[in-house]
């Protein structure tokens, strides 16, 4: 495809539903942006930054899909996280009502896929940070002395960030719901069980084909068939109705998921339930 202007690229990205993006898009956008910045056309330069971000979100997402097809699960996990991060930079700058670039779809699929990964524990770092500078002008930023650039805003087609100058690592914590999702704990003698994802990938043919995830919880055995005035099984000695009734405590903490494809005939062998633990051979 020969792109002659940014409008063509916008249409290309908005109609895109394939497995590989045209790599020419990024270099074209860069050259258009340079031109608009040279003419100090800040609005158009910002619109091109938006297209660059859309490209990145889609590129990471479809790369994750391809990795999942190749059973490169951790690589796919990192790509999904990157897609989500790039998307978060965009949210302040786009109209989300019409979902022109299918970004809401990608965001939802990313969240759904993350739920199907077996990862449960991650590392979270602790650091003390001091002294920052502005990514746009390079000036030092302190509490009461700033440049005029606003964090997250777009200047000359680039997003304003803070660059930490002095960072001292202090500790790691082991957590279950991290901000840095790439920091998955890998155990030398154990292999993660990706059976659920692998089953999905046998049926899911295109990254833009829709499916939805139904999340269900099972009531714990001790709470089954209880009456309101029965003693609560949690050993509180209170009545069930005044204790755990209608609270999340009655459900098993591990949900089970059902993947539902609309308007698609799923072969019978893929419709059987899978019970998959975190680790293989457990």
């Amino acid at each position: 495809m020969n792109f002659i202007n940014e409008t063509m690229i916008e249409e290309y990205l908005s109609d895109f539903n394939e497995l590989y993006l045209n790599k020419e898009v990024i270099s074209k956008l860069k050259s258009y942006k340079e031109e608009y910045v040279n003419h100090n056309d800040q609005n158009t330069a910002k619109n091109i930054w938006i297209l660059e971000q859309v490209y990145k979100v889609i590129a990471h997402y479809i790369k994750a899909f391809r990795y999942l097809k190749q059973k490169k699960h951790y690589e796919a996990w990192c790509e999904l996280d990157r897609s989500d991060i790039e998307l978060s930079f965009l949210y302040n700058h786009i109209d989300r009502t019409n979902d022109k670039f299918k970004l809401e779809f990608i965001s939802q699929k990313t969240k759904d896929l993350q739920l199907l990964f077996p990862y449960t524990h991650f590392l979270s770092r602790e650091a003390i940070v001091q002294n920052w500078k502005c990514s746009i002008c390079g000036n030092s930023i302190t509490l009461r002395n700033r440049c005029s650039h606003q964090l997250g805003e777009i200047y000359n087609g680039e997003m304003c960030c803070r660059i930490a100058q002095d960072m001292k690592f202090e500790a790691f914590a082991i957590v279950t719901d991290p901000f840095d999702k790439y920091s998955v704990l890998m155990l030398g003698n154990q292999e993660y069980n990706y059976a659920i994802l692998d089953r999905l990938m046998e049926v899911w043919e295109n990254p833009f084909e829709n499916w939805r995830l139904e999340k269900n919880y099972v009531i714990k055995t001790e709470y089954l068939n209880l009456k309101r005035n029965d003693t609560c099984p949690c050993l509180s000695m209170k009545k069930y109705k005044k204790c755990c009734m209608d609270t999340p405590k009655v459900y098993d903490s591990n949900p089970f998921y059902k993947v539902i494809f609309n308007n698609k005939q799923i072969p019978k062998e893929y419709n059987e339930n899978i019970t998959a633990g975190t680790w293989k051979n457990n």
Binding site: S124, I128, A173, P178
Partner: peptide
């Protein structure tokens, strides 16, 4: 003296 303690926490 301003310092931030980063946990990169959810």
């Amino acid at each position: 003296d301003y310092k931030e303690f980063e946990l990169h926490s959810i």
